Simulated assay, not measured.
Amino acid sequence: MIDPSITSCFLSYEAGAKELREAGESTFDLGLPERNPFSETVVRTAQLLDRLRPSIVIAQEEPAALIAARIFRIPAIFSTHWFPLKEDPYSHHLSYADKILFMEREGLFIEPQEVVGRVTYTGPIVRQVRPTTGGSKAVRRHLGLKATDPLILVLPGSPPEDREPIAQLILDAFDCLPEPQKALVWVSPRDIEKVTASAGPRRNVHVMSKVSNLDDVIIASNLVITKGTYNLTNEIQLLGRPSIALTHRYNPIDDYFVRHSPQGHLVDVRECNLQEFVRLLSASLLQNPVFEATSIPRSAFGGVSRAAAEIYKFLRQTPPQTTPK
């Protein structure tokens, strides 16, 4: 239930600000680039907080907002799904948070000394996956595949192909698979032109910007290939599919989550040759999964409600801010 007495607004920049505005949310654009300078983020956030004087600040993996909030003595929550894997100045900034909402399971990361005693674990926040009854079989029929024919799904996520290329390795390895009836589905709105050009005349490679029910396509697939994007890793695991994450080692946190995923396999693109990748694909396809949705417990989607409840409790325990004259 929404409390009508609570109002909220967002401070963001670049792509985040654009998405929030498009979603109809009240948004203040900090006017910063995607790779935002830390000091300038503190300054611009502090200037807005001085005007707005909110009751609390919630910093979503943005430690600069914690410092800005402390300047005006505004209570602050820091929400995150990871902690640094080694000693890092980032950890020191977390000492300015009154509360840490950790949106993953406990024990996955070692808590930095700066946050011990102030961490609440909500569990992961994942999209409400909605596979349909018989939907995965319909996907295979549409592609002309029998239950024994391999289907590989590629969900590259981000970054784009021109920054972290994976298409040529995947397409060359797919060509080497011996099965006469096979298909590869590549879903990516941002890379469609580049990947379509790379796929060329292959009739068993289907490149598209989106699909009507992604969850059915995931379940219909023998294997899902990604770049290890955190949310995709969680969703694929939830739907019970094996996955391979191709990494360029630019995002150690996403790589860390893949290594701790029970059905995930991390492959360094820079060190993997074609023959090794073909062997890995062949071994993964031999797992022969059942192409039906498994029962997903409701508790898997409880992270959102648990996080919201913690924020509401924190807000109600916080005295209102007063704007100085």
Rank of each mutant, 00 (worst) to 15 (best):
G302R: 06
Q317L: 15
G302H: 01
F301D: 05
L285S: 05
R298D: 14
F301Y: 08
V269G: 01
G303A: 04
L266S: 04
R270F: 02
L266T: 03
E310N: 01
I311L: 07
S295K: 06
C272Y: 01
R306G: 00
R279D: 10
H265C: 13
L280I: 09
V267T: 11
A309V: 03
P297V: 03
L266K: 10
Q275A: 15
C272V: 09
F277R: 06
C272N: 10
F291T: 06
G303Y: 00
S299E: 11
T318Y: 10
R279K: 12
A283W: 14
V267G: 00
D268H: 14
S295I: 08
A308W: 01
Q317C: 11
Q275T: 13
T294E: 06
L274P: 09
Q317A: 15
L280H: 02
R316H: 09
P319Y: 09
V267D: 02
Q317Y: 01
L280D: 00
V278G: 11
N273V: 10
V267N: 03
N288I: 13
S299N: 04
E292G: 05
S282N: 14
G302M: 00
V304H: 11
F301H: 05
V269M: 12
F277M: 11
T294P: 00
A300C: 07
H265W: 07
A307I: 02
P297G: 02
V290A: 13
Q275C: 07
E292S: 11
T294D: 03
A293E: 00
G303C: 02
V290E: 15
P319D: 12
S282F: 15
N273C: 14
Q317N: 09
L315A: 02
P289M: 01
S299Q: 08
V290R: 15
E271N: 14
L266H: 08
T318Q: 08
L285H: 03
A300T: 01
V278T: 13
A309S: 13
P289V: 00
D268L: 10
G302N: 03
R316N: 11
P319G: 07
S284G: 02
P319E: 13
R270Q: 14
